[in-house]
Computed example of a mutant assay.
Amino acid sequence: YSYISGETHFTRGSKIEWMTILIKELLNKYKKVTNENWGRVNGIHRNSWADFNLSSLEFAQEDKGDLLPSEDHKKVELLVNKLKTYEHQEEKYYLHGDAGVHNFVYKGNKLNGVIDPMPLIGPKIYDFTYAFCSSPDDLNLETLLSSFSLLTQDVPFNIERLLEEVIFQLYTRIGVCIRVHPHDLSGYLKSWKEWRVYLPSM
């Protein structure tokens, strides 16, 4: 891609502002794909999106250790099993695959470009929740629902499923944070205490 002026991480403005640009200019322009396996284009392919979620869960559990209560880990496992029930609804898209603030270029407090894709075949909701959870600020329902209302969808998407997708993404994000963004960890752990109420009952 061509050079994009600006800087990453900082002076990015509010989440709802850059999420709005991201959704309208990138996510809503994604193209469907057929005859492709789920998963990383240049990595391990999966037979289903549920398999991809399961591998993400395993990686996250390895990273966290005893950072979160064992009960939370068990509830997230239940959540992943519940997400399997949506398997028949999933549409395959060619995704950026790493659509987070660390790969966004900002200029004058405004999103100006997206760099460093890790191509992925998956549902559009993945890049949406990944972006939403890619920074610990504004991880609240108001920002989530306002931005989600802008995302075009092929199938009905109720609030319950949206919350499930977000909390699973947040869980995996904490694992990523431990490895490569430790300075954000305290913010994510604070948000987790608020979001864990949406975990399924055991």
Rank of each mutant, 00 (worst) to 15 (best):
Y1W: 02
Y1V: 00
S2V: 01
I4Y: 00
G6F: 07
G6C: 02
E7Y: 00
T8D: 00
G13C: 09
S14K: 14
T20S: 15
I21S: 08
K24L: 09
E25D: 10
L26M: 15
L26W: 14
L27P: 04
K29M: 05
K31I: 06
K32T: 14
N35S: 08
E36T: 12
N37K: 13
V41E: 07
V41N: 04
N42Q: 12
S48A: 09
A50G: 14
F52I: 13
F59W: 15
F59P: 04
F59K: 13
F59T: 13
K64T: 14
K64F: 12
L67T: 09
L67E: 04
P69K: 10
D72H: 03
D72A: 03
D72E: 08
H73M: 08
V76R: 06
E77M: 10
L78D: 02
V80H: 01
V80F: 01
K84I: 09
K84E: 10
K84C: 12
T85E: 12
E87L: 07
H88K: 15
Y94K: 09
H96G: 00
D98K: 01
D98R: 02
A99L: 15
A99K: 08
V105H: 02
K107A: 09
N112F: 06
G113W: 02
I115A: 01
I115V: 07
D116H: 04
P123Y: 06
Y126L: 08
F128K: 00
T129L: 07
Y130L: 10
A131K: 08
F132D: 02
C133E: 10
S134A: 12
P136Q: 05
D137W: 13
T143N: 05
L144G: 02
L144M: 06
S146F: 09
F148T: 02
S149F: 00
L151M: 15
L151W: 08
L151Y: 09
V155R: 12
V155Y: 14
P156K: 07
N158K: 05
N158F: 06
I159G: 07
E160Y: 13
E160A: 13
L162K: 04
E164A: 14
I167H: 03
F168E: 01
Q169W: 11
I174H: 02
G175S: 03
V176W: 14
C177W: 10
C177G: 10
I178P: 04
L185T: 07
G187T: 11
K190W: 08
S191K: 10
S191T: 12
S191I: 10
W192F: 04
K193R: 13
V197C: 07
V197D: 11
Y198D: 01
Y198V: 03
Y198E: 01
P200W: 07
S201L: 08
S201W: 02
S201V: 03
